[in-house]
Computed example of a mutant assay.
Amino acid sequence: MKNNKELYEYYLKYSKKTPKPLRVKIKVGDLDFKNIKLDRDIERVKRRYLQLTKNELVELLVNAEQYIAEQNQTWIKSQFESFK
């Protein structure tokens, strides 16, 4: 491509990559998990997850597990108290 100066200049002019948009940190809390609906579009959810970085997915998974553990603890406690 460098042999053809005009083509190379055209390439340099129009091949500039646009900068990637800055990623927004994912905030996951109780409200995010409470609002998940059973009948949501799973393909859309998969596409959204594919857009996340590996670190963002790990953070999301850890927060999800933490939320589940807290909900299980709350449920076990309420079951225990109801048998008193």
Score class of each variant (00 low, 15 high):
residue 30 D to E: 12
residue 30 D to I: 06
residue 30 D to T: 09
residue 31 L to N: 08
residue 31 L to D: 13
residue 31 L to A: 11
residue 32 D to Q: 14
residue 32 D to K: 02
residue 32 D to E: 14
residue 33 F to Q: 00
residue 33 F to Y: 08
residue 33 F to P: 01
residue 34 K to A: 13
residue 34 K to F: 09
residue 35 N to E: 14
residue 35 N to Y: 11
residue 37 K to Y: 07
residue 37 K to H: 10
residue 37 K to Q: 15
residue 38 L to P: 03
residue 38 L to G: 06
residue 38 L to R: 05
residue 38 L to W: 05
residue 39 D to Q: 11
residue 39 D to W: 02
residue 39 D to E: 13
residue 39 D to A: 07
residue 40 R to Q: 15
residue 41 D to C: 05
residue 41 D to E: 12
residue 41 D to Y: 02
residue 42 I to F: 08
residue 43 E to L: 09
residue 43 E to H: 07
residue 43 E to M: 06
residue 46 K to A: 07
residue 46 K to I: 09
residue 46 K to P: 00
residue 47 R to E: 05
residue 47 R to G: 00
residue 48 R to G: 00
residue 48 R to E: 12
residue 49 Y to L: 15
residue 49 Y to W: 11
residue 49 Y to C: 14
residue 49 Y to F: 11
residue 50 L to E: 08
residue 51 Q to E: 09
residue 51 Q to M: 10
residue 52 L to W: 03
residue 52 L to R: 01
residue 54 K to D: 14
residue 54 K to I: 07
residue 54 K to Y: 09
residue 55 N to H: 04
residue 56 E to Q: 14
residue 57 L to V: 04
residue 58 V to L: 12
residue 58 V to Y: 08
residue 59 E to W: 03
residue 60 L to F: 07
residue 60 L to A: 05
residue 61 L to V: 10
residue 61 L to Y: 13
residue 61 L to W: 08
